Computed example of a mutant assay.
Amino acid sequence: MKSNTWQADGLLLVTAIIWGLAFVAQRAGMEHIGPFVFNTARFALGCLSLLPLVWLRRPDRHQPLLPLLGGSLAAGILLFGGSSLQQIGLIYTTAGNAGFITGLYIVLVPIIALFWRQKTAPYTWFGATLAVIGLFILSMTDDLTLAFGDLLELIGALFWAGHVLLIGWLCRRIDAIRLALGQFLVCTLLSLGSALIWERFEIQAITTVWIPIVYAGVLSVGVAYTLQVVAQRHAPAAHAAIILSLESVFAALGGWLLLDESLGPRGLLGCAIMLVGMLISQLPAMHRKPPPEAV
């Protein structure tokens, strides 16, 4: 494995740790403010945290502006959809559940890639089946209905899968830092518009949860999403997804240590089966070479 691939894997692992613990911060933030207000604040902070990097980097004058704008818009819309559903879902479910269900996007990545005529190996279908079984054990209520918060997280996983695929394609064609800033800005504006329509801005409530907002904004958004964009320049989307899926483990650990959440025997079994399914589905990706970078 090349050194730049090892470096990319290290960055993706750090990203997974930050994102996993971010579920704890996001869950804590929901005690005082609405999901769209929270996302507006966190992604605005993410934008501000990137401005020094953008200012210090010399822009590539030969790179056209239109692809950057289009890529930022598309990535920002997917980011808004995934983060909004995730944040709303956290009102009704635990950080651990949210982390594991969100992690299903690594199973969805190669399946969605079928639309680009990419073959999906038998391992993926077997892993997907295990993941669905684990989801059933984890999230189904006694009357065999999917818990509302878990359903929102599941729908959000579709957006995260699309986001991983899109970022994997864009980051080889567009400057990574400017792409990250662009998608954060789009997501901030969409979250702000939604907050103005459905929620209220209360400064006192926002200051009450400033620690979760700062963590989710500076580390989870500004640092982790940027690390993802940079790392995926040297890792295929499926390879990145298997490492990023570890965020579900760190989300469960964080929820247990910091929020006193308990999954129980049934929840632990469901999470274990889901994690095994996620890992099995990505076995072919570990032997696949990343596509060449665009020039």
Score class of each variant (00 low, 15 high):
residue 14 V to N: 10
residue 25 A to G: 02
residue 32 H to N: 01
residue 26 Q to E: 06
residue 11 L to E: 13
residue 11 L to K: 15
residue 10 G to S: 13
residue 11 L to Y: 15
residue 15 T to N: 12
residue 24 V to P: 05
residue 14 V to G: 13
residue 29 G to E: 03
residue 4 N to Y: 11
residue 24 V to C: 03
residue 31 E to S: 02
residue 24 V to Q: 01
residue 27 R to W: 00
residue 3 S to E: 11
residue 4 N to H: 09
residue 19 W to Q: 09
residue 13 L to A: 14
residue 19 W to N: 02
residue 9 D to K: 15
residue 24 V to G: 06
residue 22 A to W: 04
residue 8 A to E: 13
residue 5 T to D: 04
residue 22 A to Q: 04
residue 22 A to G: 04
residue 31 E to W: 00
residue 5 T to N: 06
residue 18 I to S: 08
residue 18 I to Y: 11
residue 15 T to F: 12
residue 14 V to C: 13
residue 7 Q to H: 14
residue 10 G to Q: 13
residue 28 A to Q: 07
residue 26 Q to I: 01
residue 26 Q to H: 00
residue 18 I to E: 03
residue 3 S to M: 10
residue 5 T to G: 02
residue 13 L to N: 13
residue 32 H to S: 09
residue 24 V to K: 08
residue 6 W to H: 07
residue 13 L to W: 12
residue 8 A to I: 07
residue 12 L to M: 14
residue 13 L to P: 05
residue 14 V to E: 09
residue 9 D to S: 15
residue 9 D to C: 12
residue 30 M to V: 03
residue 15 T to P: 08
residue 3 S to Y: 07
residue 21 L to T: 14
residue 20 G to H: 11
residue 28 A to D: 05
residue 17 I to T: 12
residue 12 L to C: 13
residue 4 N to A: 08
residue 27 R to D: 01
residue 26 Q to T: 07
residue 27 R to I: 00
residue 23 F to A: 01
residue 6 W to D: 05
residue 14 V to Q: 11
residue 16 A to W: 12
residue 9 D to T: 15
residue 24 V to T: 09
residue 3 S to N: 08
residue 20 G to D: 07
residue 32 H to W: 02
residue 10 G to H: 14
residue 26 Q to F: 04
residue 11 L to A: 14
residue 15 T to L: 12
residue 19 W to S: 08
residue 15 T to V: 07
residue 3 S to A: 12
residue 16 A to H: 14
residue 21 L to D: 07
residue 26 Q to W: 00
residue 25 A to C: 03
residue 11 L to V: 09
residue 31 E to R: 02
residue 29 G to D: 00
residue 25 A to N: 03
residue 28 A to C: 03
residue 7 Q to M: 15
residue 29 G to V: 01
residue 6 W to T: 07
residue 4 N to P: 02
residue 13 L to I: 11
residue 11 L to C: 09
residue 31 E to G: 02
residue 25 A to K: 07
residue 4 N to G: 04
residue 24 V to Y: 04
residue 20 G to E: 06
residue 4 N to R: 11
residue 8 A to G: 15
residue 18 I to M: 13
residue 17 I to D: 10
residue 23 F to H: 03
residue 27 R to C: 03
residue 4 N to C: 04
residue 15 T to C: 10
residue 16 A to C: 10
residue 21 L to H: 12
residue 16 A to E: 11
residue 32 H to Q: 06
